[in-house]
């Protein structure tokens, strides 16, 4: 299935590059519907890989690449459930989204996140699962989870630790502040910064360059360069579940879910 149009995303293959495009209002929040579509993509990936050498993940939403987990849905679904069912539901979601992220991370393709605007939480984590990040100069990266009494839960800390110095990881996670694309490039997170609206074009240009290389060598090089921190990813799920069950998180999610701001990304 080399062309797909789902509820929250679509994909197609063009000149050996798979383009996976997120499109869910307001800013590609990752809830159940997006997870299901991502799982469809992962299931289709073995067949897509046979005709592709690269994958670009991008967004059509003008607000940004992805604002992270759908916290309003998380609250709405979890709030009425008894404690044990809430934990089981959370764990199931985390296991599934980790499977998606891990599959993208280790895919035998060169993967490029073409990002712009809000690239927060789970959106940042999706970009970190990719091999390269090409960022529009108006991109902002942020892990705001501590504001809710949580940590990033889709593999963010292990992948950030893999790619960056620990002081930068502490700065981003412990302060919850957002950084712009230039700063992100200066710390080594972003490979290329583009003009506004140009990230996808530059990602396509990069993907075209990759096509010149022997695919087997590119796959071997990626495997050698990019270890997947499986143990830490498992520990992240456990820690996230422990933290999620505390009353402080319930209060933080309620405040977020009941905010009158359409896009309450700042406290």
């Amino acid at each position: 299935m080399n062309i797909f149009q789902g509820e929250t995303l679509s994909w197609h293959v063009l000149d050996g590059t798979i383009e996976l495009t997120l499109d869910r209002a307001p800013c590609n929040e990752i809830g159940r519907a997006t997870l299901i579509d991502l799982e469809k993509f992962i299931a289709a990936l073995p067949a897509l890989q046979r005709e592709a050498h690269a994958l670009i993940i991008n967004s059509t939403r003008k607000e940004g690449f992805c604002a992270g987990a759908d916290l309003r849905e998380t609250y709405r679904v979890a709030q009425p459930l008894p404690k044990d069912e809430r934990l089981a539901g959370l764990r199931d979601f985390l296991e599934r989204i980790h499977h998606v992220m891990n599959t993208l991370d280790e895919a035998p393709l060169t993967t490029i996140a073409a990002v712009h605007g809000v690239t927060f939480g789970g959106g940042f984590e999706l970009a970190l699962a990719c091999d390269l990040i090409v960022a529009d100069k108006m991109t902002r990266f942020c892990f705001p989870e501590l504001r809710l009494g949580l940590i990033p839960g889709f593999g963010g800390i292990p992948r950030l630790k893999r790619d960056l110095g620990n002081a930068v990881v502490r700065d981003l996670v412990l302060t919850g502040r957002s950084i712009n694309a230039t700063k992100a490039q200066s710390v080594g997170l972003v490979s290329q910064v583009t003009a506004e609206g140009d990230a996808l074009r530059v990602a396509r240009s990069t993907a075209a360059q990759l096509k010149k290389f022997d695919r087997g060598t590119a796959i071997a090089a990626k495997k050698f360069i990019k270890p997947i921190p499986y143990d830490e990813l498992r520990r992240e799920i456990e820690l996230f579940c422990d933290l999620f069950m505390r009353p402080a998180v319930d209060a933080g999610l309620r405040k977020f879910a009941e905010s009158t701001d359409a896009l309450p990304y700042l406290p």
């Binding site: 607000e63 605007g117 809000v118 957002s178 700063k183 359409a262 990304y265």
Partner: peptide, 20 residues
């Protein structure tokens, strides 16, 4: 504007003044 659009303004400001 909303909080998200305020973030865009923050990015413009950081670029213009070359600050964080």
């Amino acid at each position: 504007i909303n909080s998200l659009q305020a973030l865009d303004l923050l990015t413009r400001i950081e670029q213009h003044f070359q600050i964080e």
